[in-house]
Amino acid sequence: MTRWIDIAALDDIPPRGARTVKTAQGCVAVFRTFDDRVFALDDRCPHKGGPLSEGIVHGHAVTCPLHAWVFSLETGRALGEDDGSVATYPARVEQGRVLIDATRLQTWRVA
């Protein structure tokens, strides 16, 4: 079962940027890309814990601000030479609002 919850207005996130959502287990980064799609990923780089929400967002990818690993926002997988991945969560935009799947947010973390 999905339970979409309304996080914020799309315009609260700058285009080609990100904001974070706090959860009990850590931060989730919510990205908005050039084409106004949104993606939610753990805000922790698998390399050395860099805050991905602070990276430069390009295309449908983000580059970690600490050592420049690049992650696909769609799959959470590291692109290029590096190996690793970040958990992703369903997110979407509806009438200018950003929705994120709270069940997934919980189950993923509990499991």
């Binding site: 950003v98 709270a102 947010l105």
Partner: peptide, 14 residues
């Protein structure tokens, strides 16, 4: 505001 999280779900999730 932009320096703070968009939302705090820590209570929800708990």
């Amino acid at each position: 505001r932009r320096f703070r999280p968009l939302a705090d779900l820590s209570l929800e999730a708990a």
